[in-house]
């Protein structure tokens, strides 16, 4: 089962008024791998991501997660199955502290928190766990800092800590390195590598050196369709991929 497919998309299509942003994409993500989705601008990577997490409804096609058809589920229910996504722009809760950000995710363990009559003191049971997650991403000293006051790289780190707090089986990371300085990239790369130990990761990423060093499998998208798939060595030599990236006529 460790080699099995955890997330599969079949004939995934999204049409916006006659324009096919994603067309007939078949994708199989194997359990335990880091799978990268790359492609030139406008290739449909983010749309594909939004379809997989149901933030956009697909026009056609089906999605199965761990053998279960999730095509008609709501995004919140998909997250509850253990398939958690991040966003391209940093997604933190700006006016909550780093600690509170992580606790929002940890709080999910209580089920639905509709208990408006109880003091938030009950949430302090999650403090130690939140601290250890913040420590994992190097944010220990910022636990009482508002997320809005953190640097960009640290916001991304906080986002990863929040995602990890759900202990998801599978993570979908939408451009985790976008807009990061080199030293942050190295830190986050190492972090992704570390958290992939017992998880499956699907990520969209522009930074090809990151993709090369991290991913087991790469799927190249261009104009909404799958162009090539395989490991970095295979994909980087594929002529259609080279053409899509550099343009025709470069021989």
């Amino acid at each position: 089962m460790s080699d099995g497919v955890i997330l599969a998309a079949k004939d995934l299509t999204k049409e916006f008024k006659g324009f096919f942003a994603v067309e007939g994409v078949n994708l199989q993500v194997r359990r335990g791998q880091i799978h990268a989705l790359i492609g030139p601008n406008g290739a449909g990577k983010t749309t594909c991501f939004n379809l997989l997490t149901k933030f956009l409804p697909p026009t056609r096609g089906s999605i199965t997660y761990k053998g279960e058809d999730i095509t008609s589920m709501s995004p919140a229910d998909i997250a509850r199955l253990g398939l958690v996504r991040s966003f391209q722009i940093s997604a933190v809760f700006p006016h909550l502290t780093a600690m509170e950000n992580v606790r929002i995710a940890l709080q999910r363990k209580r089920g639905d928190s509709f208990d408006f009559w109880r003091s938030q003191k009950v949430l302090s049971e999650f403090n130690d766990e939140a601290r250890s997650l913040l420590n994992d991403v190097g944010l220990s000293e910022f636990e009482n800092t508002n997320a809005s006051d953190l640097s960009y790289g640290r916001k991304r780190a906080l986002e990863i800590a929040t995602t990890l707090a759900l202990n998801p089986e599978m993570l979908l990371l939408d451009e985790p390195m976008a807009g990061m300085a080199q030293e942050d990239i190295e830190r986050i790369s190492a972090l992704i590598k570390r958290i992939s130990a017992n998880r499956t990761i699907l990520m969209v990423e522009h930074n090809l050196s990151v993709v090369a060093s991290l991913s087991d499998t790469i799927t190249v998208l261009a104009r909404g369709k799958v162009l090539a798939e395989g490991n970095y060595a295979t994909v980087s030599k594929d002529e259609r991929v080279i053409e899509a990236y550099i343009g025709a006529g470069h021989g």
């Binding site: 997250a79 809760f93 006016h95 909550l96 929002i104 995710a105 639905d112």
Partner: peptide, 16 residues
């Protein structure tokens, strides 16, 4: 407060 601050993120964490 989390929903007020960033609704899509709250959804992605599994909140209905």
């Amino acid at each position: 407060k989390a929903i007020r601050e960033n609704e899509p993120r709250a959804v992605s964490l599994g909140y209905r």
